[in-house]
Amino acid sequence: DVDGSVEALTDSFGKLSTEEIVVNIIHKGVGAITESDVLLASASDAIIIGFNVRPAGNARQVADKEEIDIRTYSIIYDAINDLKDAMEGMLSPVMKEEITGTAEIRETFKISKIGTIAGCMVTSGKIYRNSGVRLIRDGVVIYTGELSSLKRFKDDVKEVSKGYDCGMQIKNYNDIREGDIVEAYQEVAVKKKLK
């Protein structure tokens, strides 16, 4: 709407830039959003931010046709926070490991052509069939892999909760002993924040 707003917004947007994402202002000006603004945004793969202004003439129709995002604001902080949220959405998430549960091996059963099955008691959380697992012996991780089966009695199950017995087999690994601990974990995506 006025030069002062343009400068305030431009400065604020510029300050949002980080090492990973840079805010690039292609054009700024005072007055209504015009058709030529939309065509410039289309050519530059940009969004249009209007402050106390609206699209004039055919600008809105051209924007719809060219699939250009026009965002209008009347509060500077809303514009800044919206852009910040959009930038955070562009950051690739960080993968974080979450331990879902542990089980103690109480018995082992060797079955020909299949391998060794661990008879376990789930001691905390839940063991999921599709989790990654670590085999821990005397506090030391001796193998990291995945389950090839998880059963309650003779039934295949997707998960077993704390306090229940289950039978599990670790894929391509048979050196299991009574007293070993199985720790189940999953990779969880955590949204990054702009610093």
Rank of each mutant, 00 (worst) to 15 (best):
V23D: 13
K158F: 11
I111V: 14
T100R: 07
N52V: 00
V140K: 15
V38A: 09
V62G: 02
S112G: 10
N52W: 00
G57H: 04
R106T: 11
A189P: 12
I105D: 03
N130I: 04
Y185Q: 00
M95I: 15
Y173W: 10
V6T: 03
S112E: 09
E98D: 09
A118L: 01
K113T: 02
D175L: 12
S42C: 03
G139L: 05
S161I: 08
A103C: 14
E104S: 11
V53R: 00
I127R: 05
G119R: 06
P93C: 12
A8Y: 05
N172V: 00
L9M: 14
M87C: 09
M90W: 09
G132F: 06
E104M: 12
K162D: 10
V2Q: 11
V22E: 15
L40V: 15
V22H: 13
K126F: 04
F51H: 01
C166V: 14
T102Y: 01
D156I: 11
D175F: 07
I25G: 11
G4F: 10
Q186E: 12
I127S: 04
Y73V: 10
C120N: 01
G179Y: 02
I26H: 13
N58L: 09
A189L: 10
I70D: 07
Q169M: 14
I33S: 05
G115V: 00
R106S: 11
I176D: 06
G179S: 01
V23H: 10
L135E: 05
M90S: 10
K191E: 14
N81G: 13
D156V: 12
N130A: 05
K154G: 02
K193N: 04
R137H: 07
I49K: 00
N130S: 10
L39K: 15
T102D: 14
S112D: 06
T34L: 10
D37G: 07
R134Q: 15
T34I: 07
D69S: 14
